Lab assay of single mutants.
Amino acid sequence: EMEYEEITLERGNSGLGFSIAGGTDNPHIGDDPSIFITKIIPGGAAAQDGRLRVNDSILFVNEVDVREVTHSAAVEALKEAGSIVRLYVMRRKP
């Protein structure tokens, strides 16, 4: 069973403070093209906020749908998102 969360982060000097993997051209798990959080960087915006978790998958960055995009398109969406970034994420319920 999945749960969904909308997380708004303010981009810090060091960016959003997380790493991603995945994409249609580089699936992270099997042939699932989802964009997954692979690392939360200590002291970064995501770590300070505390809600984003490793293995969360990002569905939307602001209004941009990143469910079926290449890795570089997801990176671009995050880069272009401005200083306030709304992430709509999905994760397995614990």
Rank of each mutant, 00 (worst) to 15 (best):
E1Q: 00
M2L: 02
M2R: 02
E3Y: 11
E3P: 02
Y4R: 09
Y4L: 01
Y4G: 05
E5S: 14
E6N: 07
E6H: 10
E6L: 01
E6D: 15
E6K: 06
I7R: 02
I7N: 01
T8V: 12
L9W: 07
L9R: 00
R11S: 06
R11D: 10
R11N: 08
G12C: 03
G12Y: 14
G12I: 10
N13W: 05
S14G: 15
S14P: 05
S14T: 12
S14R: 06
S14Y: 08
G15Y: 09
G15L: 12
G15C: 05
G15F: 14
L16I: 08
L16E: 15
G17A: 05
F18K: 00
F18A: 08
S19N: 05
S19F: 05
A21G: 11
A21K: 07
A21V: 11
A21Y: 06
G22N: 04
G22K: 04
G23T: 06
G23N: 05
G23K: 08
T24L: 07
N26A: 05
P27T: 09
P27D: 07
H28S: 08
H28V: 13
H28D: 08
I29S: 10
I29K: 09
I29Q: 13
G30P: 12
D31M: 05
D31Q: 11
D31G: 06
D32C: 07
D32Y: 09
D32S: 09
D32K: 10
S34N: 15
S34C: 07
S34L: 14
I35F: 11
I35C: 09
I35T: 14
I35H: 15
F36G: 09
F36A: 08
I37Y: 00
T38R: 09
T38H: 05
K39L: 10
K39R: 13
K39G: 11
K39Q: 15
I40L: 07
I40S: 01
I40Q: 01
P42R: 08
P42Y: 12
P42K: 08
G43H: 08
G43W: 04
G43M: 06
A45Y: 15
A45L: 13
A45E: 04
A45W: 11
A45H: 15
A46F: 14
A46T: 10
Q48C: 12
Q48A: 04
Q48Y: 05
D49M: 03
D49H: 04
D49Q: 02
G50V: 10
R51C: 13
R51F: 02
R51L: 08
R51G: 12
L52Y: 01
L52S: 09
R53Y: 02
V54L: 09
V54K: 08
N55G: 06
D56S: 09
D56A: 03
S57G: 13
S57L: 07
S57W: 03
L59N: 14
F60G: 08
F60P: 00
V61N: 00
N62W: 05
D65P: 14
D65G: 14
D65Y: 06
D65Q: 15
V66W: 04
R67D: 02
R67F: 03
R67A: 15
R67G: 14
E68R: 06
V69Y: 15
V69L: 04
T70G: 08
T70C: 15
T70Y: 14
T70N: 10
H71I: 09
H71F: 03
H71L: 04
H71V: 03
S72D: 02
A73C: 10
A73N: 12
A73Y: 10
A73G: 09
A73P: 01
A74S: 14
V75Q: 04
V75E: 09
V75G: 07
E76C: 07
E76F: 15
E76Y: 04
E76M: 12
A77G: 12
A77C: 04
L78K: 01
K79T: 01
A81R: 12
A81W: 02
G82K: 03
G82S: 14
I84V: 04
I84E: 09
I84L: 13
V85E: 00
V85D: 01
R86T: 03
R86C: 13
L87Q: 00
L87S: 00
Y88S: 11
Y88E: 09
Y88K: 11
V89E: 00
V89T: 03
V89I: 06
V89A: 12
M90I: 07
M90V: 05
R91D: 02
R91C: 14
R92P: 08
R92N: 14
R92Y: 15
K93N: 05
K93A: 03
P94H: 11
P94A: 05
